[in-house]
Design a protein around this nucleic acid. Sequence first.
DNA 1: GATGAATGAGTATTCATTCAT
DNA 2: CATGAATGAATACTCATTCAT
Lengths: 200, 200, 200, 200
Amino acid sequence: MARKKDRAPVRKREILENFYQVLVEEGLERASLARIASRMGIHPSLIIHYFSTKEKMVGELVQYILERYQETFLPQLDGIKNPRERLSVILNSVFGTEWMSLVDGGAFFSCYALSYRNQQIRESFQKMYYTLREILVEELRNCIREGVIRDGDPEKLADFIISLLEGYDYYRGLMEDCENFEELGGYLKEVVKRVLGMEV
Amino acid sequence: MARKKDRAPVRKREILENFYQVLVEEGLERASLARIASRMGIHPSLIIHYFSTKEKMVGELVQYILERYQETFLPQLDGIKNPRERLSVILNSVFGTEWMSLVDGGAFFSCYALSYRNQQIRESFQKMYYTLREILVEELRNCIREGVIRDGDPEKLADFIISLLEGYDYYRGLMEDCENFEELGGYLKEVVKRVLGMEV
Amino acid sequence: MARKKDRAPVRKREILENFYQVLVEEGLERASLARIASRMGIHPSLIIHYFSTKEKMVGELVQYILERYQETFLPQLDGIKNPRERLSVILNSVFGTEWMSLVDGGAFFSCYALSYRNQQIRESFQKMYYTLREILVEELRNCIREGVIRDGDPEKLADFIISLLEGYDYYRGLMEDCENFEELGGYLKEVVKRVLGMEV
Amino acid sequence: MARKKDRAPVRKREILENFYQVLVEEGLERASLARIASRMGIHPSLIIHYFSTKEKMVGELVQYILERYQETFLPQLDGIKNPRERLSVILNSVFGTEWMSLVDGGAFFSCYALSYRNQQIRESFQKMYYTLREILVEELRNCIREGVIRDGDPEKLADFIISLLEGYDYYRGLMEDCENFEELGGYLKEVVKRVLGMEV
DNA sequence: GATGAATGAGTATTCATTCAT
DNA sequence: CATGAATGAATACTCATTCAT
């Protein structure tokens, strides 16, 4: 009996993964319950059985997507003590190729656009950036204290980094089939370091 | 008869304006022909009559939206000769409040997300950024030549500016109801100037 | 062009007739748009095209059903001047077999039950009985004036007649397959006449 | 074990009470197993477990509803010997306010309408009126024998009384929010007495 | 006795589109 | 230029029910 109950989260996760795939392959407007269900070989009403509403399901998808960033971000810092090294890892991560490939751009920005009309989704996004900002501020503060970077307002610097990394994702997602965008990430990382006053 | 035919573009423009409004107020998934038509007090099939397909209509909407940027951007530089002044006008523009208010974020990013699956829309966006980049490169080159900013790669710098300005729009669109984002634009502008080596 | 516009009411009437038939044959809970449409050989969405909502359609069905009574009732009195004769025609009508056969009992009481939860339907029913009562009061008043019936309160008498005729329809609709209900109508008519003080 | 099995009727009664409440509050078309179950905080399939079919459950609901009348009616006559008094109690009961308030009109007529298509339900209703008629006939016969009322056909009179009381319930259920229907019951009771030849 | 998983048919409604007028 | 009729596929969701546990 206990075993059966425990399968619900597993099943929901499964559904969310398929939802995400359909979203990537077909776009949000075509990511219908029917399409997701047929991809899974189940009946659409089973999805409703687990999420009760498509809206709630979208809400959970957003969380599922956003969690990916945190799940990839934090473990990388485990065991690293040196502030300079930690900052480098972070910058390498967010301006590297892996960060962007975590979530498909089309899926990501579709969900982001929903946040303008759906408060719950909005809050999920906001929470994610609050967390990211807190982490950055903490790291920058440590770096300042240790003299790794120039003195400055860590909150403003964090906002600068976030703006730049999101803009980079956005810009690259659009243009990467036209130009060589491999190196732009590296360039932007150098710019950030220069702004921070971190010798390269 | 020729005169009568000329009214078609006017009517199409009208429809696009209403489409945009519905998109802003109700979101892309609810911006149906029926909704647009009822807002205009006309019959849905009349919209088809002008655009033949919803997809084409969306394509034209994207162009209509993207034109707004160029239409606001370029006239501001008219008559200004001084490279330093021109660069200042540009930076004030893109990191000011007006730039973001040109197009509703929800509408903008909905369309952007479409570009991942719709080649025509993708090209519209790309073309817009190509143009923007060309303008920036040109301006930066002039500034370098005149010694207004430090020597450097104008293309990379342009990409940096574009990344930062789009990231700023993105970030602000999400967080402006939480924090004071009025000053972040100003701060980012200063950062850009510092990176360019332009004395503030 | 004018001809095309005029076909809408005809089509709506057609749909209502089919709706009524399905309602009679299958019951309200099974009278779905799909069932009505398939009976007509058309597409369900065409019904929505004409009525926009099932609820509105049900509202119009109720009016359509209730009109039947008035349409049968009033013409019978045309050309009859004598108050006694008019009253006889009325009583013969409502306690006769024809009155009940105008509308199927299952359909009628299904709609009546809706009136407890749907204000518009309720008002349709109420309006119908107001009209019926007005007619009865007027006729009774004339009969009193002419000495055809005993003096009395015509409004109370009208309410009595309405209660009795509806109770008769109700009771008969339920029991007619058990007992001989042919004569009950006649008996009740005599009771009414006795109560009115009208020599039989 | 035997004791445990005995709790089933209690549970069924509980479910029927909740079914009735949903029926009153939301109407027959919305009185689904899911709605009833969620109201009770149980799982829909538990209802199936007890009734095996919704249809059977509706059948039992009808009996549950109709029993209410008998349960209120008969006890009132207990201990009363005098035929005139007994008849008065009956008439006061059925033309008073309490009779109608026993069962919600919307619920009652919804079930009645089902009787046109569901034989089991039809028989439940018929049985109830047979019983009611038998009681009335018996009482009227006694009254005739004792000279309390005029001589006459007790079966016809019973049918008259039933017709009138049901018509009164029907009419009042519809119109009570418009007019003063408090006194109509009293008036109809007097009419009945007059028809019976019972001095008032 | 009670629950959750799963089903599959069915609901009203929305959608873009075509065609005739 | 504009409308209304009509279509057919698609939408999210509800429903009663079955089965395994």
